[in-house]
């Protein structure tokens, strides 16, 4: 993977990489992708892609459940003003 591809990937992943990270992580990514190409040898033929072993899709009723108090959830917010989470200016 060349540097421009790595830059696009980092952008999509919401990561800022330092110059030295582009080198070190780039090298690791390259090595692993190279290794992934082993999969090209395999004859995957007409196999379907998927993860489900048993296809049952279980869903629950669309009802509001409040087993956690929202005030407790807000205790983990980095910065609060009353019950609002503070973020930098959007515009």
């Amino acid at each position: 993977m060349d540097v421009s591809e790595l830059k696009i990937t980092a952008e999509l992943a919401n990561l800022n990489l330092m110059e030295e990270e582009f080198v070190s992580l780039g090298r690791e990514v390259e090595k692993i992708l190279d290794y992934f190409s082993k999969m090209m040898e395999a004859d995957e033929g007409s196999l379907p892609a998927g993860t489900e072993r048993c296809g049952a899709n279980r869903i629950r009723p669309d009802e509001q459940i409040r087993d956690i108090n929202p005030d407790v959830l807000l205790e983990n917010a980095p910065e609060l003003e009353d019950r609002f989470i503070v973020i930098p200016n959007v515009l």
């Binding site: 990937t9 980092a10 999509l12 992943a13 990561l15 070190s24 990514v29 992708l33």
Partner: peptide, 18 residues
Amino acid sequence: RSEGFGNEVKLRILLGTY
């Protein structure tokens, strides 16, 4: 994310995104 994640996590996120 850049300051909070360690190297191995960044590597795997990059690979997965790719």
